[in-house]
Lab assay of single mutants.
Amino acid sequence: MQRVNMIMAESPGLITICLLGYLLSAECTVFLDHENANKILNRPKRYNSGKLEEFVQGNLERECMEEKCSFEEAREVFENTERTTEFWKQYVDGDQCESNPCLNGGSCKDDINSYECWCPFGFEGKNCELDVTCNIKNGRCEQFCKNSADNKVVCSCTEGYRLAENQKSCEPAVPFPCGRVSVSQTSKLTRAETVFPDVDYVNSTEAETILDNITQSTQSFNDFTRVVGGEDAKPGQFPWQVVLNGKVDAFCGGSIVNEKWIVTAAHCVETGVKITVVAGEHNIEETEHTEQKRNVIRIIPHHNYNAAINKYNHDIALLELDEPLVLNSYVTPICIADKEYTNIFLKFGSGYVSGWGRVFHKGRSALVLQYLRVPLVDRATCLRSTKFTIYNNMFCAGFHEGGRDSCQGDSGGPHVTEVEGTSFLTGIISWGEECAMKGKYGIYTKVSRYVNWIKEKTKLT
Rank of each mutant, 00 (worst) to 15 (best):
C178Y: 00
E27S: 13
C252L: 00
M65L: 05
K137V: 12
A192I: 06
L425R: 00
N5H: 13
T16I: 07
Y22T: 05
C335S: 00
I344M: 12
C128Y: 02
D232W: 10
G50P: 07
S204P: 06
E54C: 08
K293V: 11
D200L: 06
A37E: 15
N283P: 03
D150S: 08
K126V: 05
L163I: 05
Q185S: 10
M65D: 15
F221W: 08
A9N: 08
S184G: 10
V447T: 09
T290F: 04
L24Q: 01
F144Q: 02
S385F: 15
Y352I: 14
I344V: 04
V228I: 11
L163H: 01
T209D: 10
C155T: 00
E54V: 03
C134A: 02
W261C: 00
N127F: 11
Q143L: 00
G253C: 10
Y47A: 15
G125D: 03
G160E: 02
L163W: 02
S70R: 14
F238P: 03
L14M: 07
D232K: 10
L325E: 01
C69D: 13
D212K: 06
T287F: 06
N38L: 07
K109F: 08
N306Q: 09
T209K: 11
I443T: 11
I17Q: 00
N151Q: 06
G363A: 05
S70F: 11
E270M: 06
H34L: 04
S365D: 06
F360P: 13
P333W: 00
I297L: 10
C170I: 01
R358M: 11
T386H: 14
S49K: 14
R364I: 12
T445L: 05
Q57T: 05
E259M: 05
K137I: 04
W118N: 08
S423N: 15
E420L: 05
S70M: 08
T426V: 00
V202D: 10
V377L: 13
I17N: 01
C268L: 01
N100P: 06
Y312W: 12
R162W: 07
N310V: 02
R364S: 15
T158D: 02
D212T: 11
Y161P: 00
I262K: 00
K459E: 12
R180Y: 05
N48T: 14
N138Q: 10
T290D: 04
W431H: 05
R364H: 11
L460M: 15
L14G: 02
T85C: 05
E10T: 05
L425D: 01
G94S: 12
T287L: 13
A397N: 01
M8Y: 13
E142H: 04
H289D: 05
K362F: 09
S156G: 04
T342A: 10
G398K: 12
N313P: 03
G427Y: 00
F55P: 15
E340A: 13
L60C: 14
Y312R: 09
C134H: 02
K347D: 14
A265L: 02
A250F: 06
G351P: 02
E340I: 11
N295M: 07
C435A: 04
N393H: 13
K339E: 15
C382K: 02
L19T: 04
A317I: 02
I344W: 06
K39Y: 07
S99V: 15
L20G: 01
E86P: 15
K89I: 06
V92S: 12
V359H: 12
L163D: 00
S354R: 07
Y441D: 00
V181K: 03
E193M: 08
V77E: 09
G402I: 14
A307M: 10
I429G: 12
L14P: 07
G94D: 08
K260G: 02
S354F: 13
A337D: 01
R180H: 07
Q96D: 10
T158Y: 03
N258T: 04
C155M: 00
P239Q: 01
L318G: 01
H303T: 11
S354H: 04
T287Q: 09
T417Q: 04
N80F: 02
G246A: 09
L14I: 13
T84R: 14
G412A: 14
N213W: 06
P333C: 01
V92I: 09
T215S: 08
G50F: 10
N151S: 06
K126M: 04
A436G: 10
P375S: 14
V368M: 15
K109C: 06
Y371F: 13
A9E: 03
V447Y: 01
F238D: 01
V181S: 13
V326L: 12
N138M: 14
R379F: 14
T332L: 10
V202P: 12
Q408N: 05
D378P: 10
C18F: 14
L319E: 00
E10Q: 07
S49C: 09
Q57M: 04
I210Y: 04
